[in-house]
């Protein structure tokens, strides 16, 4: 939380306010994009997109899991709602700009989070977690049975030949959209940490009964966290059909998304916005390296294995290890 972070920074530069932080993020994002254009290797954009997607997914999961302590296992449900809402929109209005699809996917996934949370967040946290596991199965069943978006066969999405606004390869445009989403999600996560909302979340995580007794409207706050978290996951999924160009339930609901989105914050550290970023860059990078050099089958084990190792041996994650030393 804030003062912990402040203490770390005592003697160093004072903590940035919300707007300057956002500007710094935008400058960094612009720098990354400019560097990518200068490199001009389409593989860099292709691989970078995956890491950015995981930064968004991991941060989104962390808003609920890390901040309030409620574990969402249904990441693929929210992610796929975003992805399939884009497939649906592509079929009925192919000319719709991608950022608009991202917003629609986010709103739909957020609404599902709201309904789900309203039904199960009054109970002990484990019931919420179990319900989210089941949610992933049921959304997959619904999509598999819905022929309009491809059903079990899957759906093809044709990318525009040239990227809008920036020109060049369309993957660059996808990369840019995901980069923008990263900026939004990270700025939101950090703003939450430093606001009264963040304190309320932390109180819920530490002791829900004591939080209520201190005036914290716990159900409302948990719903806010669930909607934000689910909504951002939906947003992360919305560009997916354009990235893969062929989407079927098996790939859209792949367990890899869920494991990575949980593993990355836990490996990086759940107590601050930086944790999921560190986790996503490290694990995402490592996975890509292993996929290229060893095999694609081995890389999927990395996240699961690292996650189990970290929750056992380093529960505060990499960011926590670093802080403890100082």
């Amino acid at each position: 939380m804030v003062s912990l972070a402040d203490k770390q920074q005592a003697g160093a530069a004072p903590a940035l306010g919300g707007i300057p932080f956002l500007l710094v993020l935008i400058v960094i994002a612009a720098g990354i994009f400019a560097f990518g254009r200068w490199l001009n290797i389409s593989y860099a954009f292709f691989a970078g997109y995956v890491v950015l997607q995981y930064i968004v997914l991991g941060t989104a999961w962390n808003i609920l899991g890390g901040y309030t302590g409620y574990v969402n296992f249904g990441i693929t449900a929210f992610f796929a709602i975003g992805a399939y809402s884009s497939v649906f929109l592509y079929k009925i209005a192919p000319s719709l700009p991608l950022p608009l699809m991202v917003v629609v996917g986010g709103v739909l996934a957020g609404l599902v989070g709201l309904g789900m949370g309203y039904l199960t967040l009054r109970l002990r946290g484990v019931f919420f977690s179990i319900a989210t596991l089941a949610l992933a199965v049921v959304v997959q069943t619904l999509i598999t049975n819905w022929d309009f978006v491809g059903g079990a066969r899957g759906a093809y999405v044709l990318r525009p030949r040239v990227a809008p606004l920036i020109g060049g390869d369309y993957v660059q445009y996808l990369f840019l959209v995901m980069l923008g989403l990263c900026v939004v999600v990270l700025a939101t996560a950090r703003a939450i940490e430093r606001s009264g909302l963040g304190y309320g979340f932390a109180a819920i995580r530490d002791d829900e009964g004591a939080a209520e007794a201190s005036g914290v409207p716990t159900l409302k706050l948990k719903l806010i966290a669930t909607v934000l978290s689910g909504g951002f996951m939906g947003m992360a999924g919305a560009p997916l059909p354009y990235y893969v160009t062929y989407l079927d339930p098996a790939s859209g609901f792949s367990l890899n998304y869920a494991v990575n989105a949980i593993a990355m914050p836990l490996i990086g550290g759940t107590s601050s916005w930086l944790g999921p970023v560190v986790g996503a860059v490290l694990v995402g990078g490592l996975q890509e390296y292993i996929r290229v050099t060893i095999s694609s089958a081995a890389n999927v084990l990395v996240a699961g294995g690292l996650m189990v190792a970290f929750v056992i041996a380093a529960p505060e994650g990499i960011v926590g290890l670093f802080r403890r030393k100082r």
């Binding site: 890390g66 302590g69 574990v71 296992f73 996240a303 189990v308 929750v311």
Partner: peptide
Amino acid sequence: RRQDQSLRGLSFFFGLLFIAEVTLVL
């Protein structure tokens, strides 16, 4: 023992689930 069943304990079993499944696939 650390009173950390909810977040990390659950994630531990989720990790086991994934590792077991992928190992069987391999």
